[in-house]
Amino acid sequence: MPNLREGYALPGAYFLVESSAAYGRHMRAVIIQEYGGPEVLRVAEVPIPEPGPGQVRVRVAAAAVNPVDVQTRTGALARAGLLPPRETIGIGWDLSGTIDAVGPHVTAFAVGERVVALSDRLALPVKAQAEYAVLDTDAVGRLPADADPVAAATLPLNALTAAQALDLAGLRPGQTLLVTGAAGAVGGFAVELAARSGLRVVAVAARRDEIFVREAGASHLVARGTEPAVGVREIVPHGVDAVIDAASLGVAALDAVRGGGTFVAVLGAAPVPLRGIRVANVWIRADGPRLTALAAAGLRLRVADTMPLERVADAHRRLEKGGVRGRLVLEID
């Protein structure tokens, strides 16, 4: 591994150093240089990036920790062919903060605006978990004046995934949607957004989460551990019109869908499209205007706990242990 005290060139003209004294303006950023357990996470000093044409730089206030960060750190994304070889990989997708610089030709945003954003490019050497982040303007949404930046940092990845999954489901008001993993981050947003759009929602969740999913808008609960198709068809004998499979139940959830319905896989585990069922995968993409709308929608945002950036490894350990309700958020001074 290169000697970080000497520094070395990285893709995108980044340069890691141990001390910022001799190299001008630097910032802290969470990176990895090898795959493994939480101990491979580093809070390194890197140059503060400059925005290019069509980009803004955000002074990050808070950044959420998501399962995809764990999958990046362990090498699961690389083994799946989603992450090309890199000497240094930045960590983090969700952030909130304030624009502190704009690149050439940017007119949609101004310095001082409060924003929420999704860093959806996988192979960057610096991503959301950093003091500053550079993003394309189409990945950035505005925050309402009264929005809590810590809570807002839990929104981008999971709410956008839920909204884009609902787009793929293509249902009309009055139709029936099954959401698996309905008490989770993506599932919770999917239930709330679906109910608001006039859909009848059947939720798969643990009994202890029944109050949560019903308050989110679910009409019916199928207890986790029950055979999904059996439980669903006791409520909707002909099957639901579509499912958003946030829990990756696969074929077990497929059998709850009526013939000719729609199955939306959230984590890529799409089953064979039996009985004329249309199967689709939701692959998240940044969408600044949609983020602006979601941030203003008054959705329920769940913060499990907050930690300083330096405790990112502890956040990973807690997430891997399981049982976290809501998102762990790194607060960045």
Rank of each mutant, 00 (worst) to 15 (best):
P104Q: 07
R121G: 11
R42I: 07
F15T: 10
A247N: 06
G276R: 05
S20K: 11
A313K: 14
E6F: 14
D241M: 07
R300H: 15
S96L: 01
D333K: 10
E39P: 11
V150Y: 06
R327N: 14
L83E: 06
V102M: 14
G187A: 02
G24Q: 08
L77D: 02
V106T: 04
A242S: 07
G170D: 01
L301D: 03
A265T: 02
V40A: 02
V65M: 12
G75R: 05
T226F: 09
L171T: 03
A190G: 11
G260R: 07
G322N: 04
V213W: 10
S219R: 14
V106C: 02
N3H: 13
G268Y: 05
T292F: 02
E87C: 09
L330D: 04
A246F: 02
G36N: 02
V186G: 12
G181T: 02
E131C: 06
V102K: 08
A80D: 02
R59D: 10
L95F: 05
V43A: 03
P144T: 06
R275C: 08
A315T: 08
L221Y: 08
A229K: 13
V204G: 14
T107D: 15
P47D: 08
M307I: 06
D100A: 06
G112Y: 04
A152K: 09
V106E: 03
Q55E: 15
G97N: 00
Q129N: 04
G184Y: 11
G239C: 04
G184N: 10
F15Q: 12
D69C: 05
G24P: 05
V17C: 06
V236Y: 08
L83I: 03
G184L: 08
R325I: 05
D69A: 04
D120S: 15
M307V: 07
G260S: 09
E234D: 13
A133N: 11
P47L: 13
A313Q: 12
A159F: 01
T306M: 03
V179I: 13
P125Q: 10
L160N: 00
E320Y: 12
G97T: 00
E6L: 15
A62G: 03
S219Q: 09
I244M: 10
A169M: 09
L294H: 03
G239M: 04
E39R: 12
V140A: 00
R302N: 03
G97H: 00
R79P: 09
V243E: 09
D146K: 11
L274T: 13
A9N: 12
A270D: 11
L291C: 05
A101G: 09
T74R: 10
L168Y: 11
G170N: 02
G90C: 00
A117H: 01
V232I: 01
